[in-house]
Simulated assay, not measured.
Amino acid sequence: MSTFTILLGGDLIRTPRLDRQVEGSRVIAADAGIGHARLVGLVPELWVGDFDSVPADLPADLAAVPRQTFPREKDKTDGELAIAAAIERGATSLVLAGAFGGKRADHAFLHLALALRLAEAGTEVLLTSGAQEGVPLLSGTAGFDYADGTLFSILGFSELAGLTVTGAKWPLNQVEVAFGSSLTISNEVQGRLDIALGHGRALLLAHPYPLPES
């Protein structure tokens, strides 16, 4: 398996879990995502984008990263272009670091939808901000290594059928979930979390670390 970490422009904090997830991966930065490289201790092999949001005062090793430049007026985001570059280089697994938050809610939504499309095409995808992470859910069964008490939600991108959740405070057994329903929001891990989906598209959103108190 060839894993690439894509540095995106959203929120990112460094955690031991994130270090394990990106360890040994190849790295491509998408425009402002280069600003996360020093945080996670990685130097990208490629920097992709229109470079309209380059961080100021980049260290010399990051400023020297080879660039693939695109016009500002284009039909793909810098993140999608960086992902395409990784797949061209043989990526079979992607860690989208900085996929949530940031200044552009539209870009964050695109990352969720794009992750589902990539998963359907056979690419393993993890979206992460360090504090929270997302995993596409397609038909079949998947297991997760989250600790007891971890908050998680299942976000439906269509109507869901045959959804079964075990190892949770509120288990589900072969339920149907209408598109837009909040039934699968704010659950907690209790034991080994396993999710089976008969039909539909969804994304698991989990918080491996406690949410900050408001």
Rank of each mutant, 00 (worst) to 15 (best):
101 G>N: 09
101 G>W: 12
101 G>T: 09
101 G>C: 06
102 G>Q: 08
102 G>N: 07
103 K>S: 15
103 K>D: 15
104 R>T: 01
104 R>E: 08
105 A>M: 13
106 D>Q: 07
107 H>C: 02
107 H>E: 01
109 F>W: 12
109 F>G: 03
110 L>G: 14
110 L>Q: 13
110 L>M: 09
110 L>W: 06
111 H>C: 13
111 H>P: 08
112 L>V: 08
114 L>I: 03
114 L>K: 03
114 L>H: 06
115 A>M: 00
115 A>C: 14
117 R>L: 09
117 R>Y: 01
119 A>F: 12
120 E>H: 14
121 A>W: 14
122 G>D: 10
123 T>K: 10
123 T>D: 06
124 E>C: 08
125 V>C: 10
126 L>E: 12
126 L>I: 15
127 L>P: 06
128 T>V: 00
130 G>K: 10
130 G>R: 11
130 G>A: 09
132 Q>R: 15
132 Q>P: 05
133 E>H: 09
133 E>Y: 05
134 G>F: 07
136 P>W: 05
136 P>Y: 11
136 P>F: 10
140 G>I: 09
140 G>W: 01
142 A>H: 07
143 G>W: 04
143 G>K: 08
144 F>S: 08
145 D>L: 14
145 D>E: 15
145 D>F: 13
146 Y>P: 06
147 A>I: 07
147 A>V: 12
148 D>Q: 07
152 F>D: 02
153 S>D: 05
154 I>F: 01
154 I>A: 00
155 L>F: 13
155 L>E: 09
157 F>K: 02
157 F>R: 00
157 F>H: 07
157 F>D: 01
157 F>E: 02
158 S>C: 07
159 E>N: 11
160 L>M: 06
162 G>Q: 10
162 G>F: 01
163 L>M: 09
164 T>E: 09
166 T>L: 12
166 T>C: 09
166 T>A: 10
167 G>R: 06
170 W>L: 11
170 W>R: 04
171 P>F: 05
171 P>I: 02
175 V>T: 11
176 E>D: 15
176 E>G: 14
176 E>I: 03
177 V>W: 00
178 A>T: 03
179 F>R: 04
181 S>H: 02
183 L>P: 08
183 L>M: 10
183 L>D: 06
184 T>R: 07
185 I>H: 08
186 S>N: 07
187 N>W: 03
187 N>S: 01
188 E>Y: 07
189 V>R: 04
189 V>I: 01
191 G>Q: 14
193 L>R: 05
194 D>Q: 15
196 A>S: 15
197 L>F: 11
198 G>R: 11
199 H>Q: 15
200 G>A: 00
200 G>P: 00
201 R>K: 14
201 R>V: 04
202 A>S: 07
203 L>I: 00
205 L>Q: 12
205 L>Y: 15
207 H>G: 04
208 P>Q: 02
209 Y>G: 01
211 L>H: 07
